[in-house]
């Protein structure tokens, strides 16, 4: 297959100076006279005569200016014929001449004028329309790549639209308001060469009409109207109400609908709309009776025929809800009300007003708000207020004879609205008080063995009758007595000892009734007094003062502190360490074909040793077998570091089958090779055959479909010598491609020496079984390590291994972890004694996902012999990843 154009010429130019553009030659020239002839489009088909050939030399010339837009490619059919007989000596050869594009075409809009419309108030970035321009130049070429741009906007101002440069989509850039600008006119330019300065441009006009939505509320021309009508008459037009609306005139967004809010309960009136003027005509349709109503207050509302736009609808007809009007109300009552009388006493009614109707609110409930003395109770339905108890003008909640409380009206609709009204209760005084001991504060201590008590009549008679003070109780007899010190009979209490007492202060008024106030007296004991404790004595009406001071010791538990102090110390001790997990395998280029770059080993090893980026892909597994140098876990398992490898990466490097079994990302491989194949196919020059890529498998047992992967294989099918330059796998592939019978890969069935190492490890009390010496670890061959250990102390079952030498050259290390349990139980469980034989294989393993820490359990003595092999590996799926002929008990 001839896959390349033979030549190229530029359209619109004289290419003759480049002649000859191509030449063909048949090697039959050497033995016979040959004439060359061409046919096809551009020769003997339209456009005729573009190409001619020198029949003797085979040189092909171009003679005319060509237009790529007419003929992008010429296919010249070349013939070689015997000059004497005219017989063809060669099969006709297709020679293609590609016409190179020149930017000689202007972008053409599909319409000269675009018209579109979009609703006002729409979301930004809403698509308005799409402009399309085409360019006849070569597709997928910069000459035909069009960039769109808004050149101007009318009316000017802030840009209201944005034009997608690539696809010509016109979007809203700002919120449009029809009431501001009802239409826009844009000049749009399309420029090829992606808008570059060397591009060619064309323009079009783009008109955008802004569609009205009902986003304006109608209002009334006046806030009040009045009219008069005689009783017993009807009127077809009492008065007109003008509606004003900013939306588009004569549309439903503009047309008004009038309605009565209140006042027309009798149905005497109606309103019709004059569609021409948008006025409401108020008519009287039912006779009025002057004697029944001399005036009728009508409350009228207006809306539109069309529903309000969702963007504003919530703002229409705001519900004001209930409110107390006036905001406070005053009541009065006498404190002489008895307990019996208050049970039926109604203080008053305080209803909220529906501010939308002006009538008492109906859909509300009432509760008491601030009511410091809990004096009121209100009926939740009708706002009737009653007392809860006897009122007292002398209550400290009463200020200047007025008690203040609040009542709340809460609407029952959602959202609930609450209005607050204030109740001012003026309490009329009555003579109902005994003398009251004032707020005298006396310090009672050792040196002041008396306290003066002053009584005051709260009924406000400063010159009331004398008071009488009596000692009510004392814990010990006669520790206190009362001594009157002046004519006002103000007593003082004289102390005779320690302790507490109670004094009652009685007032003998005109009626010789005795009501009392009492207070407790308390004196500190001697020690407290001597230490200077002060006692404040405060007497008030029925107020007991208890000057006890109770120290409160806040004891703070130091548990937290202890806990914090004993916080986890990472890294202390050792234990099971979590194996870092990654989910995606990496593919290493050396794993595909060819030698492995040496530095990859270090890269990989370092990653592994870091403990943080270990991947679980099969490639890493296999690679890890060959790159144990420096391997160790983050928890201190690095004792394996520094030990040698088997030195046989080839033998343990995986085939692609292993890659699959290990979970290599086959999608990645597919993509990788597909891209490579494309890249090679598009390159101008053929690549040497040994430069192609190969992913190859021998189609062994259970090979997945497509195991012979993609290969970009380029070569001259007439020349087989390139096969000799290929490696065995490439050569096999080449032979497959050529349809040859291939020979099996020689190393598959070679009887490589096989070594089996079995290691068993016990938790405690067991000794490590000596490792089996390997006679010659350097020999090419299989190494299969099967290992079982347990931490549970259960009897160890003998490991079972099954070695199949067919699966070479591999090292398969399987591992079984039986119930890793104790953290400390593994301590020292693995001690590797001196290995007298230099050819040992030491297998260490990783524990997959134990949670806690264990102390370092693996100590490996210095193995001086370089031929030791330390195999460190990771088992991701111990069961499923094994081949069927491997059995693990």
């Amino acid at each position: 297959e001839w896959i390349k154009f033979a030549a190229a010429c530029r359209e619109g130019e004289d290419n003759s100076k480049r002649n000859p553009i191509a030449k063909v030659r048949s090697d039959c020239e050497e033995t016979q006279p040959i004439v060359y002839r061409i046919t096809g489009q551009g020769i003997d088909e339209s456009p005729i005569g573009v190409f001619i050939i020198n029949s003797r030399t085979g040189e092909i010339n171009i003679t005319k200016i060509v237009d790529r837009e007419l003929t992008p490619v010429f296919v010249i059919l070349c013939h070689a014929e015997n000059a004497a007989t005219g017989l063809a000596v060669e099969k006709p050869l297709e020679l293609r001449v590609r016409v190179l594009d020149v930017n000689d075409n202007i972008p053409i809009f599909s319409q000269t004028i675009y018209e579109g419309a979009i609703e006002e108030g729409g979301m930004e970035n809403t698509l308005v329309m799409k402009l399309v321009a085409t360019d006849a130049d070569e597709p997928n070429n910069l000459n035909s790549k069009i960039a769109y741009k808004i050149e101007s906007q009318e009316p000017a101002g802030a840009p209201m639209f944005i034009l997608n440069k690539q696809n010509g989509e016109l979007h809203i850039a700002n919120i449009l308001d029809r009431e501001q600008h009802s239409s826009f006119s844009l000049i749009v330019k399309a420029t090829d060469r992606d808008g570059g300065s060397d591009g060619i441009s064309s323009q079009c006009t783009c008109g955008v009409k802004v569609i009205d939505v009902n986003d304006n509320f109608p209002t009334l021309g006046q806030s009040s109207y009045s009219a008069s009508i005689s009783e017993n008459t009807l009127s077809s037009e009492m008065f007109r109400i003008q509606a004003i609306d900013a939306d588009e005139e004569f549309t439903d967004n503009w047309k008004a609908v009038f309605f009565f809010i209140s006042g027309n309960e009798g149905g005497f009136f109606d309103i019709v709309t004059d569609p021409a003027t948008n006025q409401g005509i108020v008519r009287c349709i039912k006779k009025l009776d002057y004697e029944q109503m001399q005036s009728v207050p009508l409350s009228i509302g207006v809306r539109n025929v069309a529903a309000f736009h969702h963007s504003v609808s919530s703002q229409y007809q705001v519900i004001e809800g209930p409110a107390f009007s006036p905001s406070s109300i005053s009541f009065s009552a006498s404190e002489s009300l008895t307990k019996q009388s208050i049970s039926t006493y109604i203080v008053g009614t305080y209803q909220a007003i529906d501010m939308d109707t002006g009538r008492p609110a109906t859909n509300v409930r009432y509760i008491m708000g601030r009511d410091p003395d809990a004096l009121f109770i209100i009926n939740p339905n009708n706002a009737e207020i009653r007392f809860t108890k006897i009122i007292d003008r002398e209550s400290h909640y009463v200020i200047n004879g007025v008690y203040t409380a609040e009542v709340l009206a809460i609407s029952r609709d959602f959202p609930q609205r609450t209005s607050t009204g204030t109740i001012l209760l003026t309490i009329q005084d009555a003579n109902d008080n005994c003398p009251l001991v004032t707020n005298e504060i006396r310090k009672v201590c050792m040196n002041t063995p008396s306290v003066v008590i002053i009584a005051k009549d709260l009924d406000a008679d400063p010159h009331g009758p004398p008071f009488k003070f009596v000692i009510v109780s004392q814990p010990r007899n006669h520790l206190w007595d009362i001594r009157y010190v002046n004519v006002c009979q103000t007593p003082f209490l004289h102390r005779h000892g320690w302790g507490w007492g109670r004094v009652r202060v009685c007032h003998v008024d005109h009626a010789h009734t005795s009501r009392g106030a009492s207070a407790s007296l308390s004196l500190p004991d001697q020690s407290e007094t001597e230490s200077g404790t002060k006692l404040f004595f405060k007497m008030h009406y029925l107020l007991f003062l208890s000057p006890l001071v109770i120290p409160i010791l806040m004891s703070r538990s130091d548990c937290c502190g202890n806990c914090l102090g004993a916080g986890t110390k990472h890294g202390v001790g050792a234990g099971f360490e979590t194996v870092p997990e990654c989910t995606e395998g990496n593919i290493h280029s050396w794993g595909i074909e060819g030698a492995q770059p040496e530095d990859r080993v270090n890269i990989y090893t370092n990653t592994y040793g870091g403990g943080g980026m270990v991947t679980s892909g099969g490639v890493e597994e296999i690679t890890g077998l060959g790159t144990v140098k420096g391997y160790g876990t983050a928890g201190g398992y690095g004792t394996a570091a520094g030990y040698g490898t088997t030195g046989r990466k080839e033998s343990i490097g995986g085939t692609i089958k292993e890659y699959r079994e290990g979970g290599v990302n086959m999608a990645f491989l597919d993509s990788y090779f597909s891209e490579k194949a494309f890249a090679y196919a598009d390159e101008d020059e053929g690549r040497p055959a040994n430069d192609c890529l190969l992913i190859y498998d021998h189609e062994g047992l259970d090979s997945p479909v497509g195991s012979i992967g993609c290969c970009s294989f380029i070569g001259d099918d007439l020349d087989d010598t390139y096969l000799d330059t290929l490696g065995p796998k490439f050569k096999t592939l080449a032979e497959i491609c050529l349809g040859r019978e291939i020979e099996p890969i020689p190393d598959v069935n070679l009887p490589w020496p096989t070594t089996v190492v079995t290691e068993n490890t016990y938790t405690t009390g067991s000794t490590l079984q000596p490792a089996m010496p390997i006679p010659d670890p350097v020999l090419q061959g299989n190494v299969i390590v099967t290992e079982t250990y347990t931490t549970s102390g259960s009897p160890l079952k003998p490991p079972t291994r099954n070695v199949d030498p067919l699966y070479s050259p591999n090292v398969v290390v399987t591992e079984r972890v039986v119930a890793p349990a104790s953290v400390t139980g593994l301590h020292g469980m693995l001690e590797i004694p001196d290995l007298p034989d230099g050819s040992n294989v030491v297998v260490t393993e990783r524990v997959i996902a134990p949670s806690s820490r264990i102390p370092p359990s693996l100590s490996i003595p210095d193995l001086a012999d370089a031929s030791n092999v330390v195999v460190t590996e990771r088992v991701i799926r111990p069961a499923s990843g094994l081949q069927s002929n491997f059995g693990i008990p």
Binding site: E1, W2, I3, K4, A6, R25, L93, G686
Partner: peptide
């Protein structure tokens, strides 16, 4: 057949190039 075409570099210098059949 041995086809050759002339290719032009950026400097306008023509160069004959022989094409082989290529197989993918």
């Amino acid at each position: 057949f041995l086809p050759q075409v002339k290719e032009w570099d950026e400097n306008g210098v023509g160069r004959w190039k022989t094409f082989k059949r290529q197989k993918r």
